[in-house]
Computed example of a mutant assay.
Amino acid sequence: MQTTEDIKKIIEENLAVMLYFSAPTCNVCHALKPKLVDAISSNFKEFEIVSVDTSIDQEIAANFSVFAIPTVLVFLGGKEFLRKSRHMSVDEVIREIKRPYEIMIS
């Protein structure tokens, strides 16, 4: 089981991190996650992906001010860069990350 400190350490130690907040009862979460993980993995080699189950880790969700699921938080260079909740498309997330990510790793 991960803690808020574990996740903060991952964010500090990695160039690009995506936190994916979901819960077992969320059908949208389960439909979106594999597509999003696949798209992130194929477009961005340096990404670390962390899944947070809000039904278990309420404290982590609260710590990152996540109150709706699914929620995606993207951190670039240790700073929160993107926050998307509920209605999002995989293409939209990829599009918003692409340019700053490429600038960072070049």
Rank of each mutant, 00 (worst) to 15 (best):
E80I: 06
V90D: 05
F21V: 04
S42P: 09
V17N: 02
E96M: 13
A31L: 15
K79Q: 07
V74P: 03
I10E: 03
I7G: 02
V50Y: 04
M18P: 01
V52T: 10
I56C: 01
T4D: 06
S106H: 15
L82M: 13
V37W: 09
D6T: 13
V90G: 05
S42M: 07
V50S: 01
K9D: 00
H87S: 09
P100E: 07
R83V: 03
H87M: 12
Q58R: 14
F47I: 06
E13V: 03
L32R: 02
I11Q: 02
F75I: 05
Q2T: 10
C26R: 13
C26L: 04
Y20I: 04
V93Y: 08
L36N: 03
D6W: 09
M1T: 15
T4H: 10
E12M: 09
E102K: 14
Y20Q: 03
L15S: 08
S41W: 05
K33Y: 08
M88N: 04
H87P: 04
I49N: 07
I103Y: 14
F64G: 02
I103V: 08
I7H: 06
V72Q: 04
H87A: 06
V37D: 08
T71I: 10
M1W: 12
K35T: 11
S55H: 15
K45I: 11
